[in-house]
Design a protein around this nucleic acid. Structure first.
Length: 414
RNA sequence: CGGGGUGUGGUGUAGUGGUAGCACGCGUCCUUUGGGAGGAUGUAGCCCGAGUUCGAAUCUCGGCACCCCGACCA
């Protein structure tokens, strides 16, 4: 894309109503627009990042045989009443509204109930199982306090997945298979080494749930970590009993701030029993199915990546999610020769299949470099007089600042 | 929801009762062109509503919005 075509602009200063690093940088660089507290619009560059994250998640979920769907934002009151979760005293994040024709609807903050209900149409026999479905959905939660930029909003994108199994063994096997799938996602996003599968409160159905916690100062959670054993415990379940069960001692644990980027819940048969989701066994009996629920915070991940991968100059995107791999910066000024060379090189890069943002704007070098640093694309390819005259081309790595000189052909084969 | 704080051009800010100023941005012109350049000129603002006062960005009351701490967080 030509940068002169991109409608967003960078800002020199961060807005005063944002203190979090992720929101400051994303707004300054034009990735997002703040609509109101905890509610952000995603602009072309931000959307590209989101889509890249989603693509990775999608590939990993497909790899464990889950099928993508999209549920609805408007939800039925009666479904949630059945599980006693319509009451504002029980679920305090509901956004609700009324139909003009009469009756109430809720705005989806989770989709467990509607999915369970919908799946009754398709899951009737043990032969229909196992099944896993997932979606990328905008969740609406009426949080008392939004905070940390895009990391805890009232409107955010989440990947939620639901598994249905006909027996405990296959249910647990699936549950376990999500752990490496999730870790693959986080590895591909560049946070694998800093993300720990963490024992957390499991609710009514199981002793523990598992959270995927990424070490991050801006995170809201605190976990206790034994790096050698790879054991992580959310402080909410840090008891002597837990320590004994897990075979670690209190003084072997390190306290760290983390952001919860994913979680997985084992519902056992309880959820399906509540929802009335049952199948016929081979013996002809009705049994409640085993269910699991698996979330990944897509927009939160984007915030975590900015928090972790940025410096005083701006964002430093991991290659896997950057909106473009290469920032082609032309320093043509009013030199038509340099401009023509850069234009042609841009076309060649596109033909070579390189995702490239071409800064063809008529600005001074300093401004272009500052913008380039802020935007945080992995590689900056600079076209100045020397390059246009046939010299080698300068390639700067955003993450390290290292400068390489490459031939035109070498750049095109990147 | 409890506590604390803040609302001034598009952005960041100065201005404690008396002509709203600065920087950046944006427009026009000239020079400049490898790390946010210089000059000339222009553009644009006191969150909303009441009240006090001769006079309110400034004081009072109410509202709205935003930030931070806590609480909350399938």
């Amino acid at each position: 894309m030509r940068q002169s075509f991109l409608f967003t602009k960078t800002r020199r200063e961060a807005p005063k109503d944002e203190l979090s690093k992720n929101a400051q940088l994303l707004i300054r660089a034009g990735y997002v627009h703040k609509e109101m507290a905890g509610v952000y619009a995603y602009l072309p560059l931000g959307l590209a990042v989101l889509e890249n994250i989603k693509r990775i998640v999608r590939e990993e979920m497909n790899a464990i045989d889950s099928q993508e769907i999209v549920m609805t934002t408007l939800q039925r009151k009666d479904l949630w009443e059945r599980t006693h979760r319509w009451d504002d005293d029980i679920v305090d994040v509901w956004f609700k509204s009324e139909l003009k024709a009469g009756g109430e609807v809720g705005f989806g903050w989770s989709h467990e109930e509607p999915i369970g209900e919908m799946m009754k149409n398709f899951i009737v026999s043990y032969k229909d199982l196992p099944v896993s479905v997932y979606q990328f959905q905008t969740k609406l939660r009426n949080e008392l306090r939004a905070k940390s930029g895009i990391m805890r909003g009232r409107e955010f994108v989440m990947k939620d997945m639901y598994s249905f199994a006909g027996d405990e063994a296959s249910h647990l096997a699936y549950y376990e298979s999500t752990k490496p799938a999730y870790m693959n996602v986080f590895k591909r996003l560049g946070i694998g080494d800093d993300t720990y599968i963490t024992f957390a409160a499991g609710g009514a159905f199981t002793k523990f749930s598992h959270e995927f916690q990424t070490v991050c100062e801006a995170g809201e959670d605190v976990i206790y970590l034994n790096r050698e054993k790879g054991i992580a415990i959310n402080e909410e379940v840090l008891t002597d009993e837990t320590l004994t069960n897990l075979g670690v001692t209190r003084d072997s644990l390190e306290k760290v701030s983390t952001a919860e980027v994913g979680n997985i819940f084992n519902f056992g048969q309880q959820k399906a029993a509540d929802l009335g989701l049952a199948v016929k066994t081979s013996a002809g009996e009705d049994i409640a199915v085993w269910m699991g629920s698996y979330g990944i915070g897509i927009t939160r991940l984007m915030g975590v990546l900015v928090e972790k991968f940025s410096d005083e100059k701006g964002i430093v995107w991991p290659e896997t999610v950057a909106p473009f791999k290469v920032h082609l910066v032309s320093l043509a000024g009013n030199d038509e020769g340099v401009r023509a060379y850069a234009d042609a090189f841009y076309e060649d890069m596109k033909k070579a299949g390189i995702e490239v943002l071409y800064d063809d704007r008529d600005l001074r070098a300093g401004e272009k470099f500052a913008d380039s640093d802020l935007l945080g694309l992995p590689y900056r390819v600079i076209i100045g007089k020397d390059a246009a005259a046939g010299g080698e081309i300068e390639v700067v790595h955003r993450a390290t600042g290292t400068v390489e000189k490459k031939t035109r052909e070498a750049v095109l084969s990147m």
